[in-house]
Nucleic acid binder design. Structure first.
Lengths: 206, 206
DNA sequence: AAGTGTGAAAAGTTTCACAGCG
DNA sequence: CGCTGTGAAACTTTTCACACTT
């Protein structure tokens, strides 16, 4: 996909760096050293430099990195120049909560519509976003050219809904269902499994 | 901590295997082969076998693994023999949503109490769990011997609250705040950063 | 002097391939 | 025969250490 193989984890950290840089910008900082930025991002300085070096040379030796240009280049890299529209499927307990949660909007994502099997029931949860029946999924995705979806349906429905999403042209799925989804390789799935994270913690807590 | 070094990712996958095994038990399956279990868990058979082998020999050659005993051993390993009590700090939008979300309970975790800076405001969000003021945090943790916390406070407060949690004896934190927390090495932090996950997706979606 | 960029070494993780057991 | 358990190989990612630039 890229000239040299860029580690997947580097992409993750890029988002972290981006957020930290935005904070530095707000504080009016002009430049930042790899060690300072690494500190707030929670990584080692050498790793930060290596991560950035995959994409070019942005720093000045003896000085550090220019905050604003660096933030700009990461934003472009992450495909955040334009607002990516996102849909949410499954407005149950968790789905409705995410819709009300301001975190996505704050980071510049717009959830343009939500879908639920029973939109009447879901509508009572105080949702601000347009809410459609699940049958309108395909038409909406095609018409609006949406490419990312947040999936919050029960595990039992997750694979079937995923197939419909993929079929309709969705290329990225943020999956909150506790199920391993099968998708063609060109579709990227990101799993967020809350119960799993708790379980993982309890291994270390004695 | 262990004899041989067990990869961190193995621990994660253990939770996945555990969940898959529970499903097999419900279906009344007695044994399962590494390839069948690997398939539903979304990994390669060799990896599954290697993961399990870190902890002992559980399979029968030519046959496969006994579903129920294997599930039991993983449950013990993950420290899930006893119910781990968990507290949730920050009952704002996301925090309140997580309290209403049934996913934790379904997987056998009990959120025993929630804390918020403004419990009166938070109380209006329809929360079933006992809700306390933030000032009662230390006393509660000490009295109940809680060791795990779900952190949903705003980023600006996250580090300060974390310090209090650690001070009081919390050993595992599931962190939903978009901040890199600093903790002593014996405290395990698990970050779930929803905006970050979306941002990560948009890199791959073109 | 301060701090980046980077090859090379180290560490960590996955995959292979096959011996060995039931 | 079928399927596990496992050393060894392959691959990925992190860390080191230092040459080099401003």
């Amino acid at each position: 996909m890229e000239r040299v193989d860029i580690p997947k984890k580097t992409i993750y950290r890029l988002s972290i760096y981006h957020r930290c840089l935005k904070r530095l910008m707000e504080r009016g900082e002009d430049t930042v050293s790899s060690s300072a930025l690494a500190k707030v991002a929670g990584v080692k300085p050498a790793q930060l430099r290596k991560d950035l070096a995959y994409f070019g040379q942005f720093g000045t030796r003896g000085l550090g990195y220019p905050v604003e240009p660096l933030a700009g280049m990461i934003r472009d890299l992450l495909g955040r120049e334009r607002l990516q529209p996102v849909i949410l499927v499954g407005a149950g307990n968790l789905g409705a909560a995410l819709l009300r949660y301001q975190g996505f909007q704050k980071e510049g994502f717009e959830v343009v519509a939500a879908f639920d099997e029973h939109p009447e029931t879901a509508r009572q949860r105080g949702i601000a976003v347009p809410l459609h029946g699940a049958d309108e999924l395909e038409a909406f995705i095609a018409k609006e050219g949406v490419r990312m979806a947040i999936l919050c349906v029960p595990g039992s429905a997750a694979q079937a809904v995923t197939n419909r999403l993929v079929q309709s042209g969705i290329q990225g799925i943020l999956n909150f269902s506790p199920v391993v989804l099968e998708t063609p390789p060109e579709v990227v799935v990101n799993n967020v499994d809350l119960a799993l994270e708790l379980e993982h913690l309890s291994f270390f807590v004695r």
